[in-house]
């Protein structure tokens, strides 16, 4: 299988990942627990139910956030 690579901006930094890839697969490859994050894809905040269908393509911008300590 020939898998192309796409360049994306993830949390502000450039990153090469095999792709196009689904958000679910991308999170898996980054060892991120899907249930504990929110994802913004090209400035659109995704519902968790759409992670499987949403494809990450060349030039896309992603923000992946989670909860940290705060007041």
């Amino acid at each position: 299988m020939f898998n192309k690579s796409v360049n994306i901006t993830l949390n502000g930094d450039p990153l090469d990942v095999p792709g196009p890839v689904s958000v679910t697969a991308l999170l898996e490859s980054l060892a991120i627990d899907v249930r504990r994050v929110a994802v913004e894809h090209n400035l659109v905040i995704l519902k968790r139910a759409t992670f499987d269908q949403t494809l990450v393509r060349e030039g896309d911008t992603l923000e992946i956030v989670n909860f940290v300590g705060g007041g």
């Binding site: 993830l10 949390n11 502000g12 930094d13 980054l30 060892a31 991120i32 627990d33 504990r36 994050v37 929110a38 923000e63 992946i64 956030v65 989670n66 909860f67 940290v68 300590g69 705060g70 007041g71």
Partner: peptide
């Protein structure tokens, strides 16, 4: 309890989760 929303730490995935 209150929590803050921040970018996931991608450089250190071993860091334990607040949750």
């Amino acid at each position: 309890v209150t929590v803050a929303v921040r970018r996931v730490n991608l450089s250190d995935r071993t860091k334990e989760s607040l949750l």
